[in-house]
């Protein structure tokens, strides 16, 4: 109780502490990293927010701003998803011949096409964050972000996730419509959807962390396109982007299944088309582990990168 009262008192004092005069642009501090220090609160009603709440609000606001930006040009936003229709139709035409009336590695034609709608939705919703960071480094614009009281890594991650999460929904909707038309409904879709959606979002987080990591390499190489090219191919192949990794030879399937690329594409899609308890546990544990590893790697990489920051743009 007393700490709250003290915090509120400090907030009140912050209001009165205009350094010179009472003008509207008064330069007395209104905020600070310590949360309550110097923060004006005319009514004295505010409780000092905890550090986690402040961080959540800060990056949450960045996330929401990025999400809103995505739908600025609604027509273009929706139209660019037409590419997914083309992919699904081409792959459906191919697989109709390959599958005939049989199943491969336990997957029917219907399951495989639905699988593709989910992996593609995760893949196509990813942003081009690596290019943004590369441009920031090349032009020196990275410096502007660093005058703000947030982490460069956290800001970019929140911004990219805000964009990606908004892009995910129309892709899922289009995938749903196309798959319904071509192969009909997916058994157990409704029951699998809630957890499957969480897994897909986690897949988006993983993909975003990868492009963030690749983007940060620009501090050393300035051109990250080769790294991105390799990463993309690894997702296509080891991640099971076009076909479930169950189709691979056993040794390759076992290897692929443990890579972060598979937790980005294969496992979330499998959660939707062939859900079972083991898959759910495997997906949750694998995704959480790789997200932690990649997030840590990005933080460490940026800590090193800051030491390398130099004279681009003066």
């Amino acid at each position: 109780m007393s700490s709250i009262a003290t915090g509120a008192e400090r907030l009140r004092r912050g209001t009165a502490r205009t350094r010179r005069g009472t003008g509207p642009l008064g330069s007395s501090r209104s905020a600070g990293p310590s949360g309550s220090s110097g923060r004006p609160d005319p009514a004295g009603l505010l409780r000092p927010a905890g550090p986690l709440a402040r961080i959540g609000r800060r990056y949450g606001a960045v996330f929401l701003s990025a999400a809103r930006t995505q739908v600025t040009y609604l027509g273009a936003f929706l139209f660019r998803n037409v590419f997914l229709v083309v992919i699904l139709f081409v792959m459906y035409s191919l697989w109709r011949v390959v599958f005939a009336d049989s199943a491969i590695a336990g997957f029917t034609l219907g399951q495989t096409l639905w699988y593709l709608t989910f992996t593609e939705a995760v893949e196509l919703s990813r942003t081009r964050l690596h290019i943004d960071i590369q441009d920031d480094v090349r032009t020196g614009a990275v410096a502007y972000t660093l005058t703000r009281p947030y982490s460069y890594v956290g800001f970019n991650l929140a911004q990219a996730l805000g964009s990606a999460m908004v892009k995910l929904w129309p892709l899922l909707a289009i995938g749903f419509a196309v798959a319904m038309v071509l192969v009909g409904p997916l058994d157990g879709y409704v029951a699998a959807f809630p957890l499957g959606l969480v897994a897909m979002m986690a897949g988006v987080v993983l993909g975003t962390l990868w492009v963030l990591f690749i983007g940060l390499l620009a501090f050393w190489t300035e051109d990250v396109s080769p790294f991105y090219w390799i990463y993309q191919k690894l997702v296509f192949v080891l991640g099971g982007m076009f076909i479930p990794i169950d189709f691979f030879p056993d040794w390759l399937a076992a290897l692929s299944a443990r890579t972060p690329f598979a937790y980005q594409a294969y496992w979330p899609a499998r959660m939707m088309v062939a859900p079972d308890a083991a898959t759910r546990i495997e997906t949750a544990v694998g995704q959480a582990g790789w997200i932690a590893v990649l997030a840590l790697a990005c933080a460490l990489l940026f800590a090193r990168a800051r030491r390398r920051m130099h004279a681009h743009g003066g």
Partner: peptide, 12 residues
């Protein structure tokens, strides 16, 4: 957004 970034409380 900047208000959030700089922890400026809502009413303020």
């Amino acid at each position: 957004l900047l208000g959030r970034v700089y922890d400026v409380p809502g009413r303020t």
